[in-house]
Design a protein around this nucleic acid. Sequence first.
DNA 1: GCCAACGTTGGC
DNA 2: GCCAACGTTGGC
Length: 160
Amino acid sequence: MKPGRRYWLMKSEPRVFSIEDLAQSSKQTTCWDGVRNYQARNFMRAMTVGDQVLFYHSNAEPPAVVGIAEVVRTAYPDKTQFDKSSHHYDPASAPSAPRWDMVDIQYRQTFKASLSLDRLREEPQLKNMVLLQKGSRLSVQPVTEMEWVLVLKLAGARAS
DNA sequence: GCCAACGTTGGC
DNA sequence: GCCAACGTTGGC
């Protein structure tokens, strides 16, 4: 655990963009566009290069943490907010004052055994994970170092 | 496909 | 500034 590193969890629907898609992306890197929630955006703005990310498959069977990525570029304006043809177009956002940001993340590893939501709920020490809170829908959320260490342990994974 | 939980919008 | 209406998320 390197000092100063922070830990996060980011959700993606695998039918839209899976961890396999990330692994096969150019430079195994992608920009995390489309976030349109202020709290999630603010968490992305707090990210620094080197921060570690749990990659979570939502709306999946089963929903699960499936691997690890790393932040390789800090927050910068999400171009899709100005693109009228984009599903994420935001007419209320001005180019002079972009409302939405994104970060770049790079693939690190896929867990041999992904950790399902049910499995995570079985761990008393993870009961405070943002992911496990009732009604939690945040697509970008903080993870504590204790939670990070335990999730990797449960996944039989080593920190990258 | 259902629907609970949550965030946003806009009338007042 | 309240809050009803609406849209979205995401587990099930």
